[in-house]
Design a protein around this nucleic acid. Sequence first.
DNA 1: TTATTTTACTAATGCGCTTTACTAATGCGG
DNA 2: CCGCATTAGTAAAGCGCATTAGTAAAATAA
Lengths: 358, 358
Amino acid sequence: MNKPRRTTSKQVAERAGVSQTTVSFVLNNVEDANISTETKERVLQAARDLNYVPDRAARSLARGRSNNIALVLSQPHAQIWIDEYIPKILTGISQATEDTDWRILVQFDRTGTRDVYTDLLQSKEAAGVIVNFSHPSSDDIRQILACTQQGLAIVSLSNIHPDVYSVEVDKFAGVQKVVRHLISQGHHRIACISYAPAKTNPHADRRLRIFRDTLREAGCAYDPKLVRHGAFEPDTGYEAMRSILQESPHPTALYAMNDVMAFGAYQAIYEAGLRIPEDIAVVGFDNIRLANYVAPPLTTINEPDVEQGRRAAEMLLALIDSRQPEEKHVTLETQLVVRRSCGARQRSESPEKGGYSF
Amino acid sequence: MNKPRRTTSKQVAERAGVSQTTVSFVLNNVEDANISTETKERVLQAARDLNYVPDRAARSLARGRSNNIALVLSQPHAQIWIDEYIPKILTGISQATEDTDWRILVQFDRTGTRDVYTDLLQSKEAAGVIVNFSHPSSDDIRQILACTQQGLAIVSLSNIHPDVYSVEVDKFAGVQKVVRHLISQGHHRIACISYAPAKTNPHADRRLRIFRDTLREAGCAYDPKLVRHGAFEPDTGYEAMRSILQESPHPTALYAMNDVMAFGAYQAIYEAGLRIPEDIAVVGFDNIRLANYVAPPLTTINEPDVEQGRRAAEMLLALIDSRQPEEKHVTLETQLVVRRSCGARQRSESPEKGGYSF
DNA sequence: TTATTTTACTAATGCGCTTTACTAATGCGG
DNA sequence: CCGCATTAGTAAAGCGCATTAGTAAAATAA
């Protein structure tokens, strides 16, 4: 281990013929330090000459906080690849931190027992944390609240508690959009494939209830025999749809709670010799990239994921800076993207060509 | 800004009735410190009581290096969502760092001008860096070499220079597998959709050359009229295929350089009233999750992305630790995953059901 | 001219840990 | 019982920066 002896601010100071303090003032643009322009220039030149890069650890230690924000992922790995959600959130966070010297820490929370975000904050590895719970336990919430009350910066990607800052996408309204759209197309026997059993997954449960309520509000019967649950993956959508097709009469429409399961359902529908949308209209959820490139292109709900990531990061940076964010809970809206699979005349809520947006 | 005054090791020391040195020895499991079991227990208890979490910045400063490794992404954002590559690499890295206290820093290299990884390493924000260049400039390479020679730990996800450590997937051999498979099925008019013009993208160029050479080695003619390039996205595959179908006679097979473009091509083929694989056999590349759930399921090349990420991280940690990795360049093999789109009897190189592996 | 403010800096301290050098106490062979 | 090694610790220095309190010189006010 040859120590290459990094350049320190002291060396810069020496070369510029000033004190280390002055170097620090110049490099951090301290307003009321009254450093003359010539001195400033001399310091900057010296720093350039010596190829000086400040030591982040030392800076963090002296300042009492780091320049990292963390994204804590609590879902299993495989789920992260399924849709483009996490990469898009990351993109959004990165947009918000562009041209700043904030860095992004990604932490997979595999254990589930230890509270990673607390450690992250207490160890000052991250000055703030963005968490992404699918369905937090009351323990999780208590933990987060404790952090928040200690003044630690946490933003959640779903609204989990009135006192926890959040930026979320209103998926539930999205469910209504789907159902109302199908009903407006004349469907009243609408099947549904959920991504998890309602008993175990509060989220899936709530979506299903909204599905049911929206049907009823429109005067349609809710038929539990037309509901199945898969588990995110395409093959579970395939199996669920095969099972649904045992019912008779057939439903005339299907709402799959994610696009990926919808693709699986496509398969089952085709195998049964049925056509989309003539025999069964299909609507998905998520607007993944491929939704526009299956046959027929899938009508679905688009979620502003990148914006969600960006807004969450912006809110987090405000919190870290002790600036009060304008709202404690931001809600972003989804858009219905109408394509051929639902049988409607093509007309998209979103302005872009192809309806693919972020 | 109320300062909650974190617990420090000094307080732990006080409570345990020992010196701060002892606390450090105990918490870091220093072998030759000869701390008695009782003292150890007392320290650990005190740390637990006070809910002590060490300050990472202070630790990094004292140790002279941080406990972060960074993944530097140089591709544009949109490309990151297209396939599951980056999330899988991240998963792999996270597997390698599981149960250690290494953290993962994700850095998007948007500027292209500044050398982010150098900064990352010089500022000691990261003890090592994994870089992912699609086609590095000679400047990039010089930069990386300079870092490597300074003893900074860098691992590349592609083999860009004999002296730069790398873990890569041999995609070129994958191209051969595709072509040979198609030829073995009796095809000799094989179209190809590349993801970029050969002139501008050395990678695409090389893949295309291998495509051509493999054809010729097998005694097949290479017909440049059957070659188009898209740009990663499904619609570009659609357009490319439409254009290819203008040629006559039709090719009997298509090799699309990624699955996503293959899906676009499906669309074009169906619109032309042709069947897959009867009229045109299709093979993709990447084995994305959905490849198995389009109609017909897509024959493709599977890449061990998660393993690549894991191996790269392992190599990096070895380098950081000044352990010489066993090999300077690791090459991982792809597998041909045979599904229905190529018309062959289903037989997969990979053992798993559905051929989906990582 | 003298007192006060402003300008342009610097010395010194401390952030919270790791690590080196040192010490006191105990064990043990001869 | 002495000398030496071992055991079980501790004191203190230092990592590289930010920051506070202070100072000398120059500018301005009285």
